[in-house]
Design a protein around this nucleic acid. Structure first.
Lengths: 110, 110
DNA sequence: TATAAATGAAACCATACGGTTTCCAAAAAA
DNA sequence: TTTTTTGGAAACCGTATGGTTTCATTTATA
C-alpha cells in the first residue's frame, strides 16, 4: 500500500475502488458512510480511498472529526481516451480492411 | 499469475501490458517479436501475454514452432463505456450544477 | 541428421496488494 | 465532563504480481 507510481489505470483495476468511484460520483460522503456500503472493514475501505486520492480521482478534506471524500474524475478522461484509441476493434464499420491486412500471417516477420 | 477471475480492468492496469496491446493492435506478432520490444525477459513477456489472453484481449494461435499473437480489443469497449459514465467530470459544459449541489457539505449525511 | 530457433514450464524470489485486528487521538454530543 | 463518533496508524497475514533463471520440447533449417 506504498506510494509506488500510482496511476489511474492501476487505481481503477480493483472492483471495490470502481464501486467507491460510483458512490462518490453521485454524492460526496465521509469515510464511514462509504464503508457502510461494503462488508469489508473500514480500514480496508480507507486504504482504497487513499489509493484513489493518490492518483487524484478522489479528494479528501478533513472537516472536524470526519473525512469528507469527493470524487474528481477528470483523471478518467485519460482512460477513456486510451481505450477509444482502439475503438476500431469494436466498431465494426471502421477499418475492417486495415485489420484484415494485419491478420495476414505474412506480416508476422516484421 | 494464476487464473483468478481475470478481468479487463486488471489486465490493462499494467503499463507493459498496455504497451503490448499497442504493439499488437498495429500488427500481429509472434512471442519473440513482442519480447524484442522490451528489456525484460521473454518469459516475463509471455506471462503478460497470457494474462491478456485470459481476458480475451489477445488471441494466441500456435503455428509450427511459434506462438502467433493477435489483438482482439473488443473487450476495451467495456472500459471505454465505464469511463464515459463519468464523462460529466471532465466535460465542463455538463452538469456543473448537479455537481455543485453535491459538493455542498449539507449533503454529507446521506 | 545435427543444430538452431521458438517457446512452454517449473522453480524461485522480493515486494505489492487486499485484507484483518488492535489501539490511539481528536471532535462532538450527552 | 464523560462518552460516542470518526478515523488514523501500526502490525500482521496470506496470496498475487512481476520478474528471474534454468531446462526440456518441438519445429525448422543447414
Amino acid at each position: 500500500m506504498n506510494q509506488t507510481r500510482r496511476d489511474v489505470f492501476q487505481a481503477i483495476s480493483d472492483p471495490t475502488r470502481r464501486e467507491i468511484i460510483g458512490l462518490l460520483a453521485r454524492h460526496s460522503l465521509n469515510l464511514n458512510k462509504v464503508a457502510d456500503h461494503f462488508t469489508m472493514s473500514r480500514p480496508a475501505v480507507a486504504k482504497h480511498i487513499r489509493i484513489l486520492t493518490e492518483c487524484g480521482l478522489v479528494i479528501v478534506q478533513t472537516r472536524g472529526r470526519e473525512t469528507y471524500c469527493q470524487a474528481d474524475l477528470k483523471g478518467l478522461k485519460q482512460v477513456s481516451e486510451w481505450a477509444n484509441t482502439y475503438q476500431e476493434f469494436w466498431n465494426d464499420k471502421l477499418d475492417a480492411l486495415e485489420r484484415l491486412l494485419d491478420e495476414d500471417p505474412s506480416d508476422e516477420n516484421l
